[in-house]
Computed example of a mutant assay.
Amino acid sequence: MVDIVMYSTPWCPFCVRAKRLLKDKGVTVTDIDISGSGELRQEMIQRSGQRTVPQIWIGERHVGGCDELYALERQGQLDSLLAQ
């Protein structure tokens, strides 16, 4: 299976929702909690160009946030990305 990386914070409802979908898919997520680290937040911003959480990568592909993850699911594309 492909590596999945998510930058998140524990109190973000969108992060919780995205993690739940990925957990339901049976995949393991490397969760990077940026809540206590300005350095990790800057790393996320540099990698994604975005300031909001979650920021999700499936393999080398930057998916974006929770809305984009659920859009992939609705379009039937998420499972094939996860199976790479």
Rank of each mutant, 00 (worst) to 15 (best):
D33S: 07
A18P: 02
D67Y: 10
S48T: 15
I56T: 03
R20V: 07
Q75M: 12
L78T: 01
M44L: 10
S80N: 07
E43R: 15
M1E: 08
S8T: 11
L22T: 02
C15N: 07
L72I: 10
A83H: 02
P54T: 10
P13N: 09
D67I: 11
Q50N: 14
V53M: 11
S35H: 05
M1N: 08
D31H: 14
G36P: 00
R74V: 00
K23R: 14
Q46A: 14
Q42D: 14
Q50W: 12
V63S: 08
T52Q: 14
L82N: 02
Y7S: 04
S8I: 00
H62R: 13
E43W: 03
M44K: 03
G64L: 13
L72R: 03
D33A: 06
Q84P: 00
S8K: 09
T28E: 14
Q42G: 03
V16T: 14
D67R: 13
P13C: 10
Q84E: 05
M1G: 09
H62F: 15
R17G: 03
S35Y: 04
G65W: 02
C15D: 06
D33H: 07
T30P: 00
G38C: 01
V2D: 00
P13V: 06
L69V: 12
I58L: 08
G49H: 13
R61P: 00
A83C: 00
Q75N: 14
E73L: 01
G49Y: 11
L82T: 03
R20L: 13
D67G: 14
L81R: 02
C12R: 08
I56V: 07
V5T: 15
R41P: 01
V63W: 01
E73W: 04
V53C: 09
P13M: 09
V63K: 03
Y7D: 05
R47H: 11
P54H: 11
R51N: 15
D79L: 05
D79T: 08
K19H: 14
I4R: 04
E68A: 15
C66A: 11
L21W: 05
G38A: 10
C12H: 09
C12P: 05
T52D: 12
T52M: 12
V63E: 01
V5F: 03
W11T: 14
V16I: 15
A71M: 13
A18E: 02
T52Y: 11
E73R: 06
C12N: 08
D31A: 10
E43T: 12
G64D: 12
T9E: 11
